[in-house]
Design a protein around this nucleic acid. Structure first.
Length: 297
DNA sequence: CGCGGTCAAGTGGCT
DNA sequence: AGCCACTTGACCGCG
């Protein structure tokens, strides 16, 4: 089991998600920003290795406006060696990597432009992982999208787009994650049937919407959608409800007992866990200790 | 130099 | 109808 956190490290004094406004776009600024983002990413990865945090989610903002028409610069070529070195570092330290395109990526939107932009974003994020030389166990994780009042049609539209419009290099990495209000685990299983995509399991979202599956059964169902050689082991997004706040809102800092219980409940299911918790690596480090006490890492 | 409004993009739920 | 949240705040103009 590998444990990690998404995108941002709060201990280090750098950010790998620096960007700028569209209005102030220039090629010069793009190059400078990507340079700084990748340098910071390197520092974060080194921090993670030093602390045994072997699962990490790369920010979508590594390359600003990467899928926007304004960006016509060949950043892939310019930063080829930097990406390759980052990838070599990741591989030589046996780290697991994911990316999570944001809410604008909606493959089943009725608006063809939205679908087109979504695919461009997926191609960008996949190409980052490709440039790093990572295999198809490095994943892109998205949600089912909208329901538009007719979920069955929306699911079929997703599958249609998947089969007819997505390039192979995106399909090799694409996963669907159960969300907290529209696409439950059951819905994701349908998408899996239609496309073969593995399912990333989110425990908190599952608490928000489900079809009665106990946590262990749900995790098992998701785990069965992963092809061990091609996809690697199950990825899990773990969080806990922030007390007294909106349903689904992430907690500030990990509390030991629920995480401990989750690990006990999922004993024997091989998984890598991404902690979606506000204080980032601080909680991830606590989580490692808890997992160690149960001999899961 | 610090504060706060705003930023490429979508969707659904809440007030 | 408008605001908020989402895997994540960061940028930039203004005082």
């Amino acid at each position: 089991m590998k444990i990690g956190y998404p995108c941002i490290n709060q201990t280090l004094d750098c950010s790998s998600s620096r960007t700028f406004r569209l209005a102030s776009y220039s090629e010069e600024r793009l190059i400078e920003t990507v340079e700084q983002n990748l340098a910071c990413l390197r520092r974060i990865l080194e921090f993670n290795v030093q602390h045994g945090l072997l699962f990490f989610r790369l920010t979508s903002d590594l390359v600003p406006f990467a899928s926007h028409p304004i960006n016509t610069y060949d950043w892939q070529e310019h930063f080829k060696m930097t990406f390759r070195r980052l990838g070599n570092y990741i591989k030589s330290n046996n780290m697991r990597i994911s990316m999570h395109p944001d809410q604008f990526v909606v493959l089943n939107s009725p608006n063809p432009d939205t679908v087109k932009n979504s695919i461009a974003e997926l191609v960008y994020q996949g190409s980052v992982l490709d440039l790093m030389g990572l295999d198809s166990t490095a994943k892109l994780q998205i949600h089912g999208g909208g329901a538009y009042g007719d979920k069955e049609s929306a699911l079929n539209r997703f599958a249609e787009v998947y089969h007819t419009l997505l390039p192979e290099e995106v399909k090799a990495r694409l996963c669907v994650e159960n969300d907290d209000r529209t696409y439950s685990l059951t819905d994701c299983l349908i998408l899996h049937e239609l496309t073969g995509m593995p399912i990333i399991f989110d425990n908190l979202h599952h608490e928000c919407i489900n079809n009665g599956e106990p946590m262990r059964e749900a995790a098992l169902l998701a785990a069965q959608t992963w092809h061990p050689e091609k996809d690697g082991i199950l990825m899990v997004d773990y969080s806990a409800q922030s007390p007294g706040e909106r349903k689904g809102k992430h907690i500030q800092s990990i509390s030991e007992e629920p995480f401990h219980d989750f690990l006990v409940e999922t004993e024997g299911i091989d998984m890598d866990i991404m902690l979606e918790i506000k204080d980032k690596e601080e909680s991830a480090l606590k989580a490692i200790e808890i997992a160690r006490s149960l001999e899961r890492v």
